[in-house]
Design a protein around this nucleic acid. Structure first.
Lengths: 183, 183
DNA sequence: ACCTGAACACCGTTCAAGT
DNA sequence: ACCTGAACACCGTTCAAGT
């Protein structure tokens, strides 16, 4: 990649991160281009779709997800509390920008989505946590990570769209958690 | 309301029901006006926002919701099965049009939404079913109907956006149901 | 190879002119 | 009182002309 192209690419991603934070992930691409000081055509050259741009922006979130999952795996707190903390963190991360949860929910399990690799990271992180708890005999045997991603993702989407606070999120997650525990 | 206004109102609602079914609830209002054979201004005169139009279209769905709730209340099947059937019906009804679940999820619990009265119908239907099962001692005591509307609504949103089939919906609902049962 | 920005398309929304 | 449709605004997307 030519030096000026690389520079523009970086400026676009930085501008997108800002604009997504201020106005949500459905913000006008126009404003991103303007703030990055490039023409709209340049944005399209680097990112054919909005999802390709989202993929670049959320790349930096994934390390945080992974370290939260590791913390959950290594925790020796009661299962309920481990899951409360993990799911709350998970929801907070994917809800960082308005409109974000919906993007992940739509792409989850769709291999041809531009953000599929990020959905895979989310699924694998969940899988690590769930597998560990299942090995301890704390979870129902038939719990699938993709399914949990979707369900917890659904909580995130609803909370995002209805502008719910952390308490509402926690209590919805509480029901999901009870549904996952071995009875 | 003048006779011609009433006629246009009815034509718009009928056209909207068709277009929403074919192209989802985010379909262009333009196409609805065209199909109803009215100008765009006439559509706006009757329905100031898209949500006002949605409210008129879903009005006819509510009797079906209520009768499904009544059936659930009167059923003497095991709690798990009653809830599976009820939630599956609930999700199916609010998912009748693409993009529909998201509209309800956004409006649920927002008194100033144009479709708030319909959200209330959904909440009360859920409340009837949940209260009945709680009275039988089958449910956890702290389960709130609004919360369940949101959670099950979240399942519907995810299923709608990720284009999931009935099996995926049922298994997600299965987790929610386990989380609601008294343990 | 990459960038620019004018141009087009689409769609929501308004409003002056009509009946 | 109600309707029409032209007009405007906004935003996504493309592409001819440039460097």
């Amino acid at each position: 990649m030519r030096a000026d192209a690389q520079r523009n690419y970086d400026k676009i991603v930085a501008a997108a991160a800002e604009v997504f934070t201020e106005r949500g992930m459905d913000a006008p691409l126009d404003e991103i281009a303007t703030r990055a000081e490039v023409g709209p055509g340049t944005l399209y050259r680097h990112f054919a779709t909005r999802e390709d741009l989202i993929d670049a922006v959320v790349k930096s979130w994934m390390a945080q997800i992974d370290s939260a999952a590791t913390e959950a795996v290594e925790s020796d707190l009661p299962t309920r509390e481990v899951l409360q903390k993990w799911f709350n963190t998970y929801v907070a991360r994917i809800s960082r920008n308005r409109g974000g949860p919906s993007k992940f929910a739509t792409a989850m399990g769709k291999p041809d989505s531009p953000i599929y690799s990020k959905c895979e990271v989310l699924r694998l992180a969940n899988d690590r946590v769930l597998t560990r708890l299942r090995d301890k005999g704390a979870l129902r045997a038939d719990v699938d990570a993709l399914e949990v991603c979707r369900l917890v993702g659904g909580v995130a989407v609803v909370a995002d769209q209805a502008e719910l606070g952390p308490d509402d999120v926690s209590s919805m997650l509480g029901i999901v958690i009870e549904g996952l525990l071995r009875e």
